[in-house]
Design a protein around this nucleic acid. Structure first.
Lengths: 348, 348
DNA sequence: TAAGGCTCTGGAAATGATTCCAGATGATGT
DNA sequence: ACATCATCTGGAATCATTTCCAGAGCCTTA
């Protein structure tokens, strides 16, 4: 038997010739459609293996009206920190299970640029790159408007959206910051704490939500809220340190501090221990997010865990639903958080 | 004048009709080739704007033999930690500047699975998805072999490759762990330290390199190396803690510790401070990687900075060179590190 | 004025798949 | 025996683009 040469780019036509069938039949085998006899299917599969045939992605996508790709678009961040990395991983896990691919892209723009003036991200300049968009990072209303005008399906990580009311409705996944902070505060109250301070710059939308959850819990317990919530041009840990330097002048001192996130909590912790105040003996401390480092702090930090991979999976799932049923109604999927009790809190 | 309706999917043919030219001319305008008169070009561009034409990505890619996408493939990691997130960001920065897209994918496999048995990642099951691959995470030799058999261009982040000699040659970008650790050790020596310990599990290839750099510097200074390098089933910070619990039994005690990375250094720091040993008064401490947290430690950690975004950019650039000139010779691009002096080290 | 070389253009062919239509075959029902 | 139906198959048409080829002007140059 003569050994036929294997062509460089094996196409469906080569396979058809090799198997002695028509191209339509090969395509039917490839797509596992009905109406191919067992014998023919076997011959085609053998030919595919012999020629090491792999179908061409672009050619397949051109007739189906789906690209099989979504874009994870991060706005206005110089780098991806651990939180978003986990969300991305969640998106990817869900995507690969559904045979979808994830394109990672990032972009920057100002909050006050008119929507029409925001440069279209490269990925959207051609049609057909991606079926939909996942918006993360810090998302402003003007960009939402811009995307809506492009008529491409998208979902947003709701917690990071800073948009006024005039932006139309859209799909989002968010975790419940209000409730998370609310429960954390209730927990401190249940342990006997009365003077509970909140530390976090409420000009950030997420800290704002958390602060409101804290406020509600304090009011419900008939306690008076306090702490530091002003806007400062500091990094998160520095904000925590600065807050301690200001709060320690106050009388009476707090017995517990709820920090806006784990980074702020770290700053608080550092400032406290430097001044000889010990956590949790003198002050109990609670964070938010549950990054890996929280568990490693000394003492390990009690914090509100955000299920970041779950958020990613939910974003991907919602986007895919959207692709099958575009337009309204718009879904707002709120995921709950989980209070993780560690040693940075003590009962009074 | 009558207003013509805008078709739903605007194609190059619609533009040609609108502008009163042939499809070839529209394509020439689109690709900015020579031989289109200024007047014609203007008419075509006007038609494109009027119809809001965006070319179809898949259709373009099918004739050019490039997809314009590369895959950032992370192996054997449950999640992306900050180091890889930075590398990915570097890749993306470089890619978008070169009008390329980055697909993020992850996969898992064992080090001892035969190459032929490793399941092909989804992205490679079809031809034409990506032009090339960037291998990161923990890469074993069997997978390198697998990829080489698929004849798809790739570059690897060299520091994370665990491969024996029998794997063929390949392109890589790496940062110089040997030199980084070497310089860090020399720095400690120059400050008068004589009893310098190394802490890091040398069964990891990266810790191994760093250890060898440390060894060379110690020998050059005629000092005897010591520390803990055995394999343990711990996380990195836990490894550092465990090392301290063992080393403190030794006499004489070290005056400085070079940790395998910042996480190990954190564990060392925690164990030391818990035992009442102070950094840097009793022991000087140096890490490796320079993650964000290093700067925030108390005292801020002296460490060897790895330029992670630069590594990502180099990976992307090398891959693109490879696409234009496939096959040997293979490039090994070694980036240097930078010693960042902070307060965790003191002169004796 | 003829030949040759630019510049510019239209349209057919090609790319590699899917889909649809027509037709063949064989089983089943009346 | 005939109609009907389900099963199975080949191949043309299709998708949206790029590329190639042929040809039309127009300007030099000998």
């Amino acid at each position: 038997m003569e050994i036929k040469p294997v062509p460089e780019h094996v196409t469906i036509r080569d396979v058809a010739r090799e198997a002695g069938v028509g191209v339509g039949t090969v395509s039917r085998v490839l797509n596992e459609r009905v109406y191919v006899s067992a014998g023919t299917r076997e011959r085609v599969l053998t030919a595919m293996r012999r020629l090491d045939f792999r179908p061409h992605a672009q050619a397949r996508r051109i007739l189906r009206r789906r690209s099989g790709m979504v874009c994870f678009l991060m706005s206005n961040r110089a780098f991806m920190h651990s939180f978003h990395a986990h969300v991305l991983q969640g998106v990817e896990n869900c995507a690969s299970a559904l045979k979808q691919h994830v394109i990672y892209a990032s972009m920057h723009y100002g909050p006050s640029t008119p929507a029409g003036r925001i440069p279209i991200p490269l990925i959207l300049q051609e049609r057909g790159w991606v079926d939909g968009l996942i918006l993360t990072g810090l998302v402003y209303g003007n960009f939402l408007k811009r995307i809506q005008d492009l008529h491409i399906p998208f979902v947003a990580l709701g917690n990071n959206v800073v948009a006024s009311r005039d932006v139309g409705d859209y799909d989002l996944v968010a975790f419940d910051e209000y409730k998370g902070a609310n429960e954390a505060t209730e927990y401190l109250v249940s342990l006997g704490h009365r003077r509970i301070f909140f530390v976090g710059d409420v000009s950030y939308p997420w800290f704002n939500q958390r602060y409101r959850g804290y406020l509600a819990a304090m009011r419900a317990a008939k306690l008076s809220p306090a702490g530091m919530t002003s806007k400062e041009d500091h990094g998160f840990p520095e904000y925590g340190e600065y807050a301690v330097s200001r709060l320690l002048g106050l009388k009476p001192l707090p017995t517990a501090i709820l920090a806006g996130n784990d980074d702020v909590a770290y700053g608080v912790w550092r400032a406290l221990t430097r001044r000889g105040s010990s956590v949790p003996e003198n002050v109990s401390l609670v964070g938010f997010d549950d990054r890996e480092e929280a568990r490693l702090m000394d003492p390990p930090l009690t914090t509100v865990r955000v299920h970041k991979e779950q958020v990613g999976e939910a974003l991907m799932k919602l986007l895919l639903e959207k692709l099958h049923r575009p337009g309204p109604p718009y879904t707002k999927r709120i995921l709950s958080t989980e209070l993780v009790r560690r040693e940075s809190v003590r009962a009074l």
